[in-house]
Design a protein around this nucleic acid. Structure first.
Lengths: 118, 118
DNA sequence: TTACGTGTGTTCATCAGTTGAACGCACATA
DNA sequence: TATGTGCGTTCAACTGATGAACACACGTAA
């Protein structure tokens, strides 16, 4: 997972559920705790996320990770780029698949017809 | 790139062009020379590829990498698995894309209509 | 109050994977 | 012979990810 994609996914999750712990994020994204921590620190450093105290004002731990206005717009921009890239990846994949089918000599395009149509 | 995918791509290239050098393979696959060497050694070890002397019988270098019968069948099996996985990846990608579109709120399905149809 | 358990963010030694510069070798050529 | 070229091979060094261990701030119960 690219750093850019990771930032996007973290922003995405935190917007919908700001009280996620770093461990929960790590599990949800399938990466390590250390990497999540590193990513969140970067987001805070950039001013895209603000760590608000949770439960008790003097508690330095157990944060609420709230997206700042800049964080929201950054997340929207990342979403669009992410989407565009995924669309392109899907197109590339189609070409690879067709090349493979031709190479294998299988005429099993019937598979596609059972997928969700386009 | 997964080790399995790398083995497949190497077999694929060598079948079509057994006189490729390791440097050419590295460039074609976008990976390092060392990794190609490691992969080819593994293929030879498994008996999927045989390194035949090229140009001159006493020359230990400049091999022809010929696929053995086992190499051919292994390559065919890998191709099928590779294809199946790519198809699945493409399906997953479609779901991600649609989820993103819903999240972004864009109704730009028109994009698809310009792609190669299914 | 005190002591303990729990869950948090943080740190960092360790590891697995990759790289490509450097090397030894076998030619072709002069 | 001497030199240049291109090959496969090696491996020290780099990169990025990991998760065990840690310090801390609570809640809870003795």
């Amino acid at each position: 997972m690219r750093p850019e994609d990771l930032r996007f996914q973290v922003l995405r999750h935190l917007e919908q559920k700001p009280d996620m712990t770093q461990r929960e994020l790590a599990a949800a994204l399938g990466i390590s705790l250390g990497r999540v921590n590193y990513c969140i620190q970067a987001l805070i450093e950039r001013g895209l996320v603000k760590a608000a105290n949770f439960r008790n004002s003097r508690n330095k731990r157990a944060y609420l990770y709230k997206l700042t206005p800049r964080g929201l717009s950054e997340k929207a921009a990342l979403a669009l780029r992410f989407l565009r890239r995924k669309e392109q990846e899907r197109q590339v994949l189609l070409q690879e698949i067709e090349a493979l089918r031709a190479e294998i000599g299988q005429a099993n395009h019937e598979h596609e017809k059972h997928e969700q149509g386009e």
